[in-house]
């Protein structure tokens, strides 16, 4: 494993320990009704970070399988919460099959196919399958929702995995896994920082109609902290130089916020609070990767344009 990657993984473990200690102290010194939820959430962070670190530490193939699995769980959750049509049951089966194929392009590092497979071929193929089934009642809504799910849960998220297909030469001290770690860590860190800043200082709401919990202080504090950490970590993990780490931090901070509220809008539309119950303390998998559906493609294309 490249040296900087090893230090970064150790740093993440240290942060998890710190978070656990802080929550433990809060529970001891200032017990409150939300403690159990916080504790569950922290435990889930350990499990999620553990699986992610394990996948990265073992090898590229396992990391790609890890993200394929995340896409599958996210798509399954999406298809389970949105209204689908009985007639489309087998169409959804084909939509699921897009996952192994899309991640095969990732493993194969075939950028041309990776970038058009879902936006072009699946976009054309899924309606074809639906026409063969022949149910026209609700056709437009079904075609639109199925494609939105594929773009969000598979296409967008697979950009994170494609960072691993980039050559290691960008920053040899971290390799391409350094980029992936940078993206995933900062996206999740940004979520936590927006939450923490919102709790500490938040009053004025940003978009009360979509997500009443989001405050201006949470947003500004979160984006600033994320950008600061991006600026500090970029030289070790990425090929970004000069002004670029600041821009990457802003992209992840702001993009993460938008991804979060987009899924919030979806849930509000469906009248549900959490997208599922897979991750104790967090909700469903979509609740956890919502920010990543925006930050992964945005960060990928930023880096790709500048350095590859």
């Amino acid at each position: 494993m490249p040296p900087n990657l090893r230090y970064a993984l150790a740093g993440i473990l240290a942060l998890l320990v710190l978070g656990t200690v802080i929550i433990g102290l809060k529970k001891l010194l200032k017990p409150g009704p939300g403690d159990r939820e916080l504790w569950l959430r922290m435990r889930s962070w350990w499990v999620m970070a553990g699986l992610f670190i394990l996948a990265i530490a073992v090898d590229r193939a396992l990391s790609i399988v890890f993200f394929a699995l995340v896409s599958f769980l996210a798509l399954k959750e999406y298809f389970s919460i949105i209204p689908t049509r009985r007639a489309d049951r087998r169409v959804l089966f084909w939509a699921y099959l897009a996952i192994p194929v899309q991640y095969f392009w990732v493993a194969d590092a075939w950028f041309g196919m990776f970038i058009i497979f879902i936006p072009v071929y699946l976009f054309l193929f899924i309606p074809l399958k639906m026409v063969v089934v022949g149910e026209t009642q609700g056709f437009l809504k079904a075609a639109g929702t199925i494609h939105w799910g594929l773009m969000t849960a598979v296409f967008s998220l697979s950009h994170a995995a494609f960072l691993l297909a980039l050559p290691d030469t960008g920053n040899p001290a971290a390799g391409s896994a350094g980029l992936l770690l940078f993206l995933v860590f900062l996206t999740q860190f940004n979520d936590v920082m927006q939450f923490v800043w919102g709790k500490l200082a938040g009053r004025r709401k940003v978009i009360p109609k979509v997500s009443p919990g989001k405050t201006v202080a949470g947003f500004v504090g979160g984006v600033s902290t994320t950008t600061l950490v991006a600026w500090l970590a970029a030289p070790y993990l990425t090929p970004l130089t000069g002004w670029q780490p600041i821009a990457a931090g802003l992209i992840i901070g702001i993009g993460g916020f938008v991804g979060d509220v987009t899924i919030s809008a979806l849930k509000r539309d469906l009248g549900i609070k959490d997208s599922g119950s897979l991750i104790p303390g967090h909700g469903g998998i979509l609740d956890r990767v919502d920010s990543l559906t925006y930050t992964a493609p945005l960060f990928f294309h930023f880096v790709y344009y500048l350095h590859y």
Binding site: F72, K76, E77, F79, S80, T84, R86, R89, R90, L92, F93, Y96, G276
Partner: peptide, 18 residues
């Protein structure tokens, strides 16, 4: 709820749903 979507009567192909 949901299993009727995953494997309804008269069908043999399971489709993933929570």
């Amino acid at each position: 709820h949901g299993l009727g979507k995953a494997l309804p009567r008269g069908d043999w192909l399971p489709v993933p749903f929570f």
